[in-house]
Design a protein around this nucleic acid. Structure first.
Length: 471
RNA sequence: GGCCCGUUAGUCUAGUUGGCCUAGGACGCCGCCCUCUCAAGGCGGAGACCACGGGUUCGAAUCCCGUACGGGCUACCA
């Protein structure tokens, strides 16, 4: 059997980290089994889907390094891969269901449906949305709009095996007949996903646990449609916020894009996401995508929800930042610096960044932390409040520092270091007392990369000029 | 209300067939060291009666039952 997995995102802008994790596992599973990974766009509710949000989804996957063998832009033998382009197919299957007596037209208005739901609830039974034959003919001749509902056999107990959760058995007695075609003739998720998974020969349906409840219904539809071979199911534990609450916008940023914008590396996101609900072994925290693919297995996926923990993500990200070589890091820093108004994309700008990266690499958790640290190389900024305070009454000292630096025979970190320490010794100043005013004068802040190295990179003329002007 | 799922430290987890678990690793936290700021790094530490209550067993985090708590679904969203 050739393994085929898929991810089916709804294109509502940048993907949710939970979807990214699901995609990652589904993808890793396919890759690890020399199978195919299909990207299918769940845009049956086409009204609010924009081209922009569709592109955002593709871009997020590309950024993460998750590629697809079949799907938008690459095509494939089972296309099209946007459900909005497959409506005819779904209608055809809905007709089959109708013809086979597995579905019926429901002419009820929203009000009627509401009322029936309330009644059913009070009577502790499932709601009934069907019509008598007479009603149906009447409604049809009036041209009343209708949906198509799939009949859930009341006595059915659906059983399936889940690779993560084990055997699941569900009694369908109170599950209402499910809408498969909306009144405008478009299919719902329940129909589209079932038909597509079957038609596209998906062998392993790996998806979020929130969709587990829909599995029995999909199995029933599948069976009614005559698709005899059932796929393997694996429902992944949900990713939640601290306290086990749903990871919603309310909690904070949940889109992949927002993490990208804050300077998380794609390799770090992949690594961290893989740690949510899965583990390589009892002690490995850091691994490459290749290692993930090689060792990923559904058996090792946990059952319980995982909380998204930013501090740990930061730690993983820091690890990957450290592993970048200086040129690579400098290049990745450019957009973040430009965003903050620095002229970092030029040869000169890149040169400055390249020079400081060795100093930054040990102190960045996120790429977006770099701009404030390197700003002094691009602008002569006004001292901030704390820096201004550190400069008070330091005129004479700063002028002396400037003179000493001017007198240096060579402009190197070692020479600067020696000169400034010598001066501090002469004046019996503790290092901190001696160096903070200089840092304040030159960088405009009390927090910067190591001082002597920073001065060397800045250059003698600029350093001296800043010292004199702050004095 | 109904159907289904889950429950190891603040967090992610290891714990595959019950004994090597006096529960392992990581993040975070605390302390010390290093130190020109901020970090990083090194060393050490606290933190879990394995949700709770019953069983089964010579022996249970691991098996069974119940309870509590949490979550998902119960849409003409996916």
């Amino acid at each position: 059997m050739i393994v085929r997995t898929r991810i089916e995102p709804a294109p509502s802008g940048s993907i949710h980290v939970g979807n990214a994790r699901t995609a990652l596992f589904s993808w890793a599973f396919a890759r690890g089994h020399a199978g195919s990974f299909v990207l299918r766009i769940a845009d049956t509710d086409a009204k609010r889907v924009t081209e922009e949000s569709f592109q955002a989804v593709l871009e997020d996957f590309r950024w993460l390094g998750i590629d697809w063998d079949e799907g938008p832009e690459v095509g494939g033998p089972h296309g099209p891969y946007r459900q909005s382009e497959r409506f005819d197919i779904y209608r055809e299957y809905a007709d089959k269901l109708l013809a086979g007596g597995f579905a019926y037209r429901c002419y009820m208005t929203d009000e009627e449906i509401d009322a029936e739901r309330k009644r059913a609830d009070a009577e502790k039974r499932r709601p009934n949305f069907r019509h008598t034959e007479a009603e149906e003919t009447a409604h049809a001749s009036e041209g009343r709009p209708h949906t198509v509902r799939f009949i859930i056999p009341e006595e059915a107990t659906v059983t399936f095996h889940d690779e993560v959760l084990g055997d699941i058995s569900t009694e369908m007695g109170r599950t209402p007949d499910v809408v498969i075609l909306r009144s405008d003739g478009t299919p719902t998720y329940m129909l589209a996903v079932t038909v597509d998974d079957a038609l596209m020969d998906i062998t392993h349906i790996i998806r979020g646990n929130d969709l587990m409840a829909s599995t029995p219904r999909q199995l029933l539809i599948r069976e009614a449609l005559g698709f005899t071979e059932a796929p393997v199911f694996a429902h992944l534990p949900l990713i939640v916020a601290e306290g086990g609450k749903p990871l919603s916008k309310r909690w904070g940023d949940v889109s992949v894009r927002s993490y990208r914008d804050r300077g998380y590396l794609p390799e770090a996101m992949i690594n961290y996401l893989a740690l949510l609900g899965w583990s390589l072994d009892d002690k490995t925290n850091i691994f490459t995508v290749e290692e993930l693919i090689d060792s990923f297995s559904l058996v090792r996926v946990g059952k319980n929800p995982a909380a998204f923990d930013i501090p740990k993500l930061d730690w993983v990200n820091m690890h990957y930042i450290k592993s970048l070589d200086p040129d690579e890091l400098a290049a990745r820093l450019v957009p973040f610096c430009e965003r903050e108004g620095m002229d970092a994309g030029t040869d000169e700008g890149l040169g400055k960044l390249r020079a400081v990266t060795p100093l930054l690499v040990e102190r960045l958790k996120r790429l977006d932390e770099a701009p404030p640290m390197v700003r002094f190389l691009f602008d002569r900024n006004e001292p901030d409040e704390k820096a201004a305070k550190a400069l008070e009454g330091q005129s004479e000292y700063l002028n002396e520092v400037a003179s000493r630096l001017e007198a240096l025979s060579e402009w190197t970190t070692t020479a600067i270091d020696a000169a400034l320490r010598a001066l501090a010794d002469e004046r019996e100043l503790k290092p901190k007392k001696a160096f903070q005013p200089i840092r304040a004068a030159v960088t405009g802040t009390l927090v910067s990369p190591p001082l002597f190295e920073s001065l060397e990179i800045l250059g003698r003329d600029e350093t001296v000029a800043r010292l004199r002007s702050a004095a």
